[in-house]
Simulated scan of single mutants.
Amino acid sequence: MTLADDEALAAAAGTPDDVLIQLLSHRNWHVRWEAAQNSEASDAVRLAALATGDKDLAAAVGQLGDALSSTVLEAVFDHPKRDGREQLGCVVRDRATQERLASGPDVKVRASLAVSNEDLPEDLVRKLAADRRAEVRACVAKRRSLPEDLVIAFASDRSANVRWWLLCMRDTPEVAALLREDPDEMTRNHARRVLGEPLT
């Protein structure tokens, strides 16, 4: 069989679980990914993918989001690699799972949830905006839309990185005016460029 045949088999509806499990160890990552994400695969396939310890396969399973059974979801949370939880955070719409990710110990998982999940309710956006880690707050600042009070609060965040991303994502005169005297030179001068003012 050719690589294209293997890819097609891994992705095809109706491919038996035992074949999909074999394909999880294929030399080509795309075949492995397709097998892990096969739309008709059982929990046994998803759990076998996680059991490989392969972070890419963990990501492939996590990316299935709300389609995961409770058994596989728990396995994603228990997995030693964070990649599955990061991908889960990008797509999951289930409120309880979002809350669990937002309260989890891994900074990168919270950051992934903050920046990538467009279905995050406002109260969880606010929770992440108050995160003790600047990496998470910066990812909230990167969101396409934010409540106005959070924009104002982020303009005086103690982290220059948070203020920079706030301005980069919203280089409007209104936001630039909040940052035209910023202590960080790069942020301050970018704000002044937006306002058409001399640099410092």
Rank of each mutant, 00 (worst) to 15 (best):
R82W: 13
A191Q: 06
S159T: 05
L64N: 05
A114L: 08
D171I: 03
R110L: 02
V72Q: 06
R137V: 14
D184M: 04
D119G: 14
L24W: 08
R27G: 00
L73V: 01
T2G: 04
E122R: 11
V19S: 09
L88W: 11
D18R: 12
L73A: 01
P173C: 13
L68M: 05
Q87P: 00
D17W: 09
N161K: 09
N117I: 07
R27L: 02
Q87N: 12
T97R: 06
K81N: 13
G196Y: 03
V140F: 06
I21L: 03
I21W: 09
L47I: 11
A160D: 14
E135W: 05
V136K: 08
G53Q: 09
V109N: 03
V140W: 03
R133S: 12
D119A: 15
A176C: 11
T52N: 07
T71A: 15
E148P: 09
V175L: 08
A160P: 02
D56N: 11
C168R: 15
R143H: 14
M1F: 08
A48M: 14
L195V: 10
D106P: 01
A41Y: 13
V115S: 15
L68I: 01
A35K: 08
M1H: 10
E86V: 05
V115E: 15
E135L: 03
P198D: 02
A160C: 06
A67W: 02
P173N: 12
D184N: 15
E7A: 04
E86P: 01
A130F: 02
S42G: 15
S69L: 04
V151P: 11
L88N: 12
A130V: 00
V19N: 05
E181Y: 05
A58P: 04
D131E: 07
M1K: 07
Q98W: 08
L3T: 04
A102P: 14
A96F: 05
E86C: 15
D184W: 08
E148M: 01
M186I: 14
D17V: 10
N28V: 09
E34F: 12
D131K: 03
A102L: 14
K81Y: 01
L50M: 10
L167S: 10
S42V: 14
H190S: 06
N161G: 09
T15F: 08
A67K: 11
R137I: 08
A114R: 09
R95K: 10
A36I: 06
V45H: 13
T172L: 06
P198M: 09
G65Q: 02
M186H: 13
A153F: 02
E148Y: 03
S112I: 01
V151N: 13
L73Q: 07
A114M: 07
D123Q: 13
